[in-house]
C-alpha cells in the first residue's frame, strides 16, 4: 500500500493508504478529523472542502496520494484554542448555520474567498458559494456571515496581508 506523508493542521503525518483512498477518507478515518463531512458523491455539495496548500478543494475529489507533501488545513485547524477564527465567529454571530453539516465546508470556502477577493460583495459571495450546498439556512445568513467574516479577517491583519490570516496553511 502506498505511504503518504503530508502536513495536516500544521502537524506532519504519515499514513498507509490504498491508491483509491480519498483525501477525505484519510482525514476522517485515518486521522480522526471528522469535522470534514461528505454530503454527495458528485463533487457538488462542498461539505468536504478543505485547504490544500492554501486553496480550497473538495477532499472527496482528491486521492490521498495526490496530497503527498502538501499542507492541508481542515476545520479543526482554524480555532486558536477556545478562540474561534474570525470567520467561525462571524458564522456564530450571524446564525450562519443550523444543522452544522455543511458548515465546515462553508467556513473553509469562505476563508479562501476572503484571501482571494477580500472586497467581495454580496453577489460575489453568492457566486463563490457555487460549490457549497446548504439545505437549512437558505444562504441568507451564511452570506451575511461571510461578508462580516471577511471584514473581521481584514481587521485582524493589515490590508493586503489578510491572505495570510491566522490558522490557514499557506
Amino acid at each position: 500500500m502506498p505511504r503518504v506523508a503530508l502536513t495536516v493542521n500544521g502537524k506532519a503525518v504519515t499514513a498507509e493508504v490504498e491508491g483509491r483512498t480519498l483525501l477525505v477518507q484519510l482525514l476522517r478515518e485515518n486521522l480522526g478529523l471528522t469535522g470534514t463531512h461528505v454530503g454527495c458523491d458528485t463533487s457538488q455539495c462542498g461539505a468536504c472542502t478543505v485547504h490544500v496548500n492554501g486553496r480550497s478543494v473538495k477532499s472527496c475529489t482528491m486521492l490521498a496520494v495526490q496530497a503527498a507533501s502538501s499542507a492541508v488545513t481542515t476545520i479543526e485547524g482554524l480555532a486558536n484554542g477556545t478562540e474561534l477564527h474570525p470567520m467561525q465567529e462571524a458564522f456564530r454571530e450571524h446564525h450562519g448555520l443550523q444543522c452544522g453539516f455543511c458548515t465546515p465546508g462553508m467556513v473553509m470556502s469562505a476563508i479562501d474567498l476572503a484571501r482571494h477577493n477580500p472586497e467581495a460583495d454580496e453577489t460575489q459571495v453568492r457566486e463563490w458559494l457555487e460549490g457549497n450546498l446548504c439545505r437549512c439556512t437558505g444562504y441568507h445568513n451564511i452570506v451575511k456571515a461571510i461578508l462580516a467574516g471577511i471584514k473581521a479577517m481584514l481587521g485582524n491583519a493589515p490590508r493586503g496581508k489578510s491572505a495570510k490570516s491566522r490558522g490557514t496553511s499557506s
Binding site: 469535522g35 482554524l78 467561525q88 458548515t103
Partner: peptide, 10 residues
C-alpha cells in the same frame, strides 16, 4: 450548539 459545529466537533 454553534461552537462545536464550527470547530468540526459535532
Amino acid at each position: 450548539e454553534d461552537p462545536r459545529f464550527l470547530r468540526g466537533k459535532g
